[in-house]
Design a protein around this nucleic acid. Sequence first.
DNA 1: TAATTTTGCGCAAACGTTTGCTCAATGGTT
DNA 2: AACCATTGAGCAAACGTTTGCGCAAAATTA
Lengths: 339, 339
Amino acid sequence: MSDKPTTIKEIAKILKISVSTVSRALNDHSSIGLTTKMRVKKLAMELNYEPNQKAIQFLQGKSHIIGVILPELSESFFSTAISGIEDVAYKRNYTVLLAQSHDDADREKLLVEKMKTQRVDGLLVSVSKTTSTYEHFEVFKKLNIPVVFFDRIPPIKDIHYVASNLENGTYEAVNFLLKKGHRTIGMINGPTTLVASHERKEGYIKAMISNRLKFDPSLIVSCDLSEDGTIDVMNTMLNHRRKPTAIVTFNDYVALFAMRYTRSLELEGIDFVSYANLPIINYMDYTPIASVEQFPYKQGKKAADILIDLINRPKNETGTEQAYFNVVVESELIVPTPK
Amino acid sequence: MSDKPTTIKEIAKILKISVSTVSRALNDHSSIGLTTKMRVKKLAMELNYEPNQKAIQFLQGKSHIIGVILPELSESFFSTAISGIEDVAYKRNYTVLLAQSHDDADREKLLVEKMKTQRVDGLLVSVSKTTSTYEHFEVFKKLNIPVVFFDRIPPIKDIHYVASNLENGTYEAVNFLLKKGHRTIGMINGPTTLVASHERKEGYIKAMISNRLKFDPSLIVSCDLSEDGTIDVMNTMLNHRRKPTAIVTFNDYVALFAMRYTRSLELEGIDFVSYANLPIINYMDYTPIASVEQFPYKQGKKAADILIDLINRPKNETGTEQAYFNVVVESELIVPTPK
DNA sequence: TAATTTTGCGCAAACGTTTGCTCAATGGTT
DNA sequence: AACCATTGAGCAAACGTTTGCGCAAAATTA
């Protein structure tokens, strides 16, 4: 039927009124009479009129699109986070342009370029593991396009970000194990370069101290998070003069490796606590007895909200100091209630 | 520094030439002299000129954005598929507007609306489980925006789609079990309403027949795919007069439930074959001995390629019959090589 | 040298919508 | 009767870019 979509012009012509009147009528402008409004709206309906967004975007310089760059959707943290982002975007009438860096810094850089040429209204980024320079984000500042980082945030100043703090959750985790009677608690931590490793360690220490226990640094070992690496550090743990009766692992994968290994040695009775990464964990035979939750959905939501706020904030008066949003989502220990 | 982005006009003014010359120079049009081209490009560089995509999109009526609506990113099938989609889009200079229906038909309908108002150049859809009407996709036909369905395709005529055929893979799976010496092979199938269930059954039957074995329909049971449902049908299986020595399950979750149940009964020696859904399966203690792979990445890739081809096909001459792409990606049995 | 082709560039329209300004007609107030 | 405020609607510019057409100057041919 209709080859080309209806335009405002056609409506104007049919009704023998001007385009501006039609435009105002459709937008419920106060200076248009009720009868005219009705006539316009009725015809618009009949002709299946849809405003040409491309024209509007062009005119107003807004796309109502936010770009999202993250490492890997197959990591459940991110696929959950994107749901939070998407839901907020949806509610606030934005749409989500998605791209994965696959933890490749070069690809990330290209994606940032693409987002720029698409002229997204704002950008949400969780940086790739291999990213070490951050100049490619500078352009956005010049273009006055806000960028909000989440979860994996770059170690630089003057950025907006939302991230989780694992100290709290880890504190609760260790505390929980202590309350359960454990006195020798091991921790399989990640590479010391990661902020996340540091936070875990701090939480651990804090818990020990607040329980008036001595902190034994040799009970915290770092690990490359591979299966072989996990087995190595498990051996270290198990041969420790104080063999741990409970272990906090860096993530669910490590927990799985470690638990499998202890079972293969027919060791029983070591309690594991991990960090929530894998949804599948609920379906498994052997699982950690508790998990530190990082609330990816909430993080995504928060980050998107901040970004859209930034997009819509009143034009920053020149001279005024820019304020940066730095939001920390606290982690929390979740102990499954046995059914 | 630069408050507003540089435009082609400014370049023209500075160089005292017309905007059309600048435009053509930047696009390497043949009718512009080399020296002029160089001058323009040099200045464009210096001024950090970026073409205003919104203007171009508006002018050409193309957004170079494809919409993708799928049920759940946290299902690994989809998060893998989107990678395929994204990679193709990336290569062919499109970007991906993403939205999840969360298997809610109403939400899906709204998302389709949104994609329409955003005027995507094309739409890729895997329909939600609860979707039962399909009129909301009709609008796109009128707007001449191509729609390609993938994996979960609606049971209607005259659509483009990419889907996998599980018959082949199932045939191979059953054949594999027969070659291993099994003679009584059970199948935990899904609801009979699903096309996928039908394909599995056909593959099963085909394998039996081609091995000159009698097909016993009572060895195929359908299941609601929940854990309780799985246990129910497992009981049926195990009490069958011919107790199966191998079982083909509808998906990895069902396989996990079933395997856990047999272990709880301290039954040994039943071989399981499943369909590849869960990446985590590789990390587990007890896994199916083989898997039917559905190649989500490939499916996503193919679907995106078809969509973009459709977007760029020459205008369909009126009167010419429309051709529909119906692509089937064959499934395949993967037997892990033990290390 | 005159006629013709090629080369290089400018003019202006077009895309669909919004919006500041203008202006006529109406109604109400002195 | 003269004046002012209000209401309702139109004119035209603007957003940045592409592109068909036209036209002059330069290069080629006869």
